[in-house]
Every structure is written in structure tokens, then in C-alpha cells.
């Protein structure tokens, strides 16, 4: 798996949303949604991007696709810097990179039939014409587990899971290499989640797709990801191979996050120690100094308040940004031994 080339590389990416106020729309601050992140995704893998609500993971996905302009930084996809392309080149590149949205009710145009929704990308990129469009649409519908006759229907006639399949078919229509899946199953019932996740995995195998899978459900991420990146208030705090991250989390935030996963075994579940963080996720308008997690970290010390920890490699493919880990020779803190942090 490690031998594959990178398909996407994100370098020092920033996205600030300016806040203005008053009669003259004075610029009074920024929402620092993405505040300097670096990661890369290898061809054919799935990178899970997890974090709390407000950690900037959805914004990161949008900026990677240039659905939002970046404030600073580069996104290199297949050798092209996505954020410096002209409008024509950008449209051509859109064929290669697609997105699956979170809300299957809002992401399909209510005035367009399913056939028109899935057929449109084929037409605008000149991938098919006339009768061929219909044939391709039918084929795509079958591939996502729907029926050809559904092409005549409208979005409101479908359930959430079916709509998500339609969204997947639309993304697949242009035959992309890379798909950003922005919480594709968080709006669905648990039983339907499994179906959609399985579908995404099947399609990945069939078409050799690469996913950036954004989610807050850690079990889902564990199931689908090759590697996982953890985000906290606009920064990535840890990236590792899936099993490495789940079995041996280094960053205290990752540990706290993972301890929140319920275990479907009553005997284990009642003995499970949870790490309870105090306070809320800080505002991205005014992120804490130094390490952003120091306000809630059970093992934070003085250095954490002033110095921003850089991402450092502690094991092959395992990077984390934590002063504690650095000063303890790459060992993770045992948060369950800190009385204040355990419930």
C-alpha cells in the first residue's frame, strides 16, 4: 500500500472567512476554519478525516476541491495546483475530482428528474450524446443499486438512502479518480449507512477510486479508511494508518475521541473508561494560543500554552502534533491514569 504514488497533496492550506461589522463593513476578524494543514492521499486509498463539529473538516474538503477559494496554500492534484488553474482548466479538472454531499435532501435539484441529474455531467463534459446518455444513466443507476426506470422520477420520490445513491451515481458519471465524501452517511439511518458504505467500497474496488472520507462517526471511519487524519479547530493533530491510529493513538485529543466509541458488548462497555474533556471546542475565530488543545488537555503543561506543536513522525506513517508525546520519547500519555479526565 505504501508503494502507491500520491494523487493529492495538500500543502500548508488555510481558509479564513472574514468577519466584517458596522456601517463600513470593517474587517474585524476571521473564522479560521482551516488553519494550516498538510496531508497527502495515495492513489486508491481512503483517507478518513475526523473531528468534532466546527473542527473545519467540511471546509477542508470544499477547499481541496476549490468549491471555496483557499486563503493560502496549495492543493496539488495529479500534478496540477488546483487553486491556480484558469476557469477552463478547472472545469476539465472537475471531471477527475468529485464530491458526495452530506444531506441527500438538499444536494439534488428538486426540479430535475434523476435522469437529468445524472445525465448532466455527461453532457457538459461531452462524455456522451443523445441515446448514449440514456444508456450511461441506466448503467450508472444499476451500479449504485437502483433501477433504470428511476431515471424518470424526481428526487422527492426517493428515500434518503436512495437519494444518496443517486448522489453517488452523479459523482461517478464523469468517471472521476478522486471523490471527497463529505459525511455521506451521517444523515442516514444506521441500517442504510451500512448499505451506502458497502456500496462506496464496492465502487472503489471497481473503479480504483480514491476517497477523502470526512466524518465524525469513528466506527464508520474505521471501517472504510486506509489512513485516518484527526482535525481539531482548523489543524490536523494526528495522521496514521487506520489500525495504528485506533490501537495506538498518540495525541490526547485522539485518545479522548476514540474513548467515546461505545463497545457493543455489555460486559466490556460497563467497564470501559471514558476520557471526558471539560469545556467546549474553542471558537475558530479566536483559537487558543500554542497548542489549540491545551485548554482541554488533561496533560497540558506550560510549553503547550505558548508554542504551537509541529506535526512530527513517531512511527512510519504515524505523525502527531503534541509536546507531551515529543518530550516523552514518542510515548502516548495514559489519560486513564489522570483522575480528572476519567469518568
Amino acid at each position: 500500500m505504501n508503494g502507491r504514488p500520491d494523487i493529492l497533496e495538500v500543502r500548508d492550506l488555510y481558509k479564513y472567512f472574514p468577519i466584517s461589522a458596522g456601517v463600513f463593513s470593517r474587517h474585524i476578524g476571521d473564522v479560521k476554519a482551516v488553519d494550516g494543514i498538510d496531508f497527502s492521499i495515495r492513489q486508491g486509498e481512503t483517507l478518513g478525516l475526523v473531528g468534532e463539529s466546527g473542527s473545519g473538516k467540511t471546509t477542508a474538503g470544499r477547499v481541496v476541491l476549490r468549491l471555496l477559494p483557499a486563503t493560502k496554500g496549495q492543493v496539488i492534484f495529479d500534478g496540477h495546483d488546483v487553486h491556480t488553474l484558469g476557469p477552463g482548466d478547472l472545469r476539465r479538472l472537475r471531471r477527475e475530482m468529485q464530491i458526495i454531499f452530506q444531506d441527500p435532501y438538499a444536494s439534488l435539484n428538486p426540479r430535475m428528474s434523476i435522469g437529468a441529474i445524472i445525465g448532466e455531467p455527461l453532457r457538459i463534459h461531452g462524455l456522451a450524446r443523445g441515446k448514449d446518455v440514456d444508456a450511461r444513466v441506466q448503467d450508472l443507476l444499476r451500479r449504485v443499486g437502483l433501477q433504470p426506470y428511476h431515471a424518470n422520477r424526481y428526487p422527492h420520490e426517493f428515500s434518503g438512502g436512495q437519494r444518496q445513491r443517486i448522489g453517488i451515481a452523479r459523482a461517478l458519471a464523469v468517471d472521476p479518480k478522486f471523490i471527497v465524501a463529505d459525511e455521506p452517511v451521517s444523515a442516514l439511518d444506521v441500517s442504510i449507512q451500512a448499505q451506502v458504505i458497502n456500496l462506496m467500497q464496492d465502487l472503489q474496488a471497481q473503479f480504483g477510486l480514491t476517497y477523502l472520507f470526512i466524518a465524525h462517526d469513528l466506527s464508520v471511519v474505521r471501517h472504510i479508511s486506509t489512513r485516518v487524519a484527526v482535525m481539531y479547530v482548523g489543524k490536523i493533530v494526528e495522521i496514521a494508518d487506520r489500525d495504528d491510529l485506533y490501537d495506538n493513538p498518540l495525541h490526547p485529543y485522539t485518545q479522548a475521541l476514540l474513548s467515546a466509541i461505545p463497545i457493543p458488548d455489555r460486559a466490556v462497555e460497563i467497564r470501559r473508561k471514558r476520557i471526558i474533556l471539560t469545556g467546549d471546542i474553542p471558537s475558530p475565530v479566536n483559537p487558543p494560543s500554542g497548542c489549540r488543545f491545551h485548554t482541554r488537555c488533561p496533560v497540558a503543561f506550560d510549553r503547550c500554552k505558548v508554542e504551537v506543536p509541529p506535526l512530527q513522525t513517531y512511527a512510519p506513517g504515524h505523525v502527531a502534533a503534541c509536546h507531551w508525546v515529543e518530550e516523552h520519547g514518542g510515548n502516548a500519555p495514559d489519560l486513564t491514569a489522570v483522575p480528572a479526565a476519567v469518568a
Binding site: L65, L67, Q98, I99, P110, E120, I124, R170
Partner: peptide
């Protein structure tokens, strides 16, 4: 602001369309 508008852009539609 609707997601289907963003979807249309993600697919490479021109503004006019």
C-alpha cells in the same frame, strides 16, 4: 446556498447554466 447549487459547480457547470 443550497447544496445542489454547489453540486452543480462541482460537476463543472458554467455559471450561466
Amino acid at each position: 446556498e443550497k447544496e445542489f447549487c454547489e453540486a452543480a459547480r462541482a460537476l463543472g457547470n458554467r455559471d450561466g447554466r
